[in-house]
Design a protein around this nucleic acid. Structure first.
Length: 370
DNA sequence: CCCTCGATCAC
DNA sequence: CCTCATATCGAGGG
């Protein structure tokens, strides 16, 4: 396989940066984009904050109450998340990126990969020019800075984009892989979160170098075949994942927090209906159907439970989806007496776009009802 | 092979 | 004292 040159682009503190652009007067001050849960006026968590706020320890996941305390001495701005706004900014930036590479893959609202192997002629100096140019274009057109990683594969490009930020550009050429990974913490590897990191720490593995000493069999035994193999290769900077045009999304979900903990169906029914309605609108907008419906129940003790069902035939109708969700939730509550619901969600999955006929699967499922 | 469920990740 | 959305994996059961 010919060597590749991959770019990973990550928009800096994206939601907060969008808010700075929407209202430049808040620039230079701490900006905190919040998800308010609606329980009390202040309940909820921080979604994203700018770097001024991060200096005070205010980052994603911190409760709004805590963030207010940490920032009480400052002139910080707290804003509710405005997702549709960020979606449209993201969409325009993605259009710019798409123009800069041979293959483009959007992996989130604020990140994407570009395969520039052809485009750069396999040369890192040319790839750097492409990277610099796309950063300039994005700043000029959308006033958003981003951080970029350029490397021989997706894994290294992603770790590289995280290496220097905000507004960074990090190149890892093939001969630099080992010195680059060397002393980095294992959690720099995508896929190594809290749980995996804990398990690794328990066996005295803290750096990627430590990880690279482990036997593949040991890794597969502790983490399963797939993850074990992945970790073994990742520690060596190896990754064959192709940059691929994203297929259509395969699921969508809505979740919310109830006003108070309850198991009263008179409160839960309209709540689920709202979520189902929002999902149905989105499905119909996208001209998609779903094959199964799930409910998500988060109890007062914060444990998470799910229950799902495959429909007789794919649908995009509110009635079908809503009734299925209601039924599933009834069954769940009946099976767990006493428990109180804190949050509830609805998910639709097995999505397809019958008109698009993007795959053989949806072709047959729309042609031969049975 | 498909379905269901929980877990994990990363946002 | 605790959001939201998506993808993926593994296990267990048909």
């Amino acid at each position: 396989m010919a060597p590749r040159v991959i770019i990973h682009i990550d928009f800096d503190y994206f939601y907060a940066q969008c808010e700075e652009n929407a209202n430049p007067s808040i620039r230079g001050k701490p900006v905190v984009v919040c998800v308010y849960s609606g329980r009390t006026s202040e309940s909820g968590v921080v979604s994203t904050s700018n770097y001024e706020a991060r200096k005070y320890g205010v980052k994603a996941g911190v409760s709004i109450a805590t963030a207010k305390k940490l920032l009480e001495s400052t002139d910080a701005t707290f804003l509710p998340m405005n997702r549709s706004q960020y979606e449209s900014v993201s969409g325009r930036i993605m259009d710019i990126l798409r123009d800069h590479g041979d293959i483009f893959e959007r992996t989130g609202i604020d990140e994407a990969y570009l395969d520039v192997s052809q485009n750069s002629n396999g040369r890192y100096d040319m790839a750097e020019t492409i990277g610099t140019s796309l950063k300039e274009t994005v700043v000029r057109q959308e006033h958003i800075t981003c951080s970029i990683g350029i490397a021989p594969n997706k894994l290294l490009a992603k770790i590289a984009s995280d290496h220097v930020k905000p507004n960074g550009l990090t190149i890892v050429e093939p001969e630099e892989i080992h010195s680059f990974l060397n002393a980095q913490a294992t959690n720099r590897i995508p896929g190594v979160g809290k749980k995996v990191e804990e398990k690794l720490r328990a066996i005295n593995v803290r750096t990627i170098d430590d990880l690279a000493q482990l036997n593949p069999v040991v890794l597969q035994e502790s983490f399963g075949k797939k993850l074990g193999t992945y970790l073994f290769r990742a520690a060596r900077g190896e990754d064959d994942e192709q940059v691929k045009d994203r297929e259509l999304p395969t699921q969508m979900s809505r979740i919310g927090t109830l006003k108070e903990n309850t198991r009263d169906f008179n409160l839960i029914r309209p709540f689920l209906n709202e979520l189902a309605q929002s999902l149905t609108e989105k499905l119909q907008d996208e001209e998609m159907t779903c094959k199964s419906v799930s409910i998500i129940a988060i109890l007062s003790n914060l444990t998470i439970h799910t229950k799902s069902r495959t429909l007789e035939s794919p649908t995009q109708e509110l009635r079908t989806i809503d009734e299925c969700a209601q039924q599933l939730m009834k069954e769940f509550l009946d099976s767990t007496p006493q428990t109180m619901l804190r949050r509830a969600g609805v998910k639709v999955s097995g999505l397809s776009k019958p008109s698009g006929q993007t795959n053989i699967e949806s072709f047959f499922s729309t042609r031969s009802p049975q």
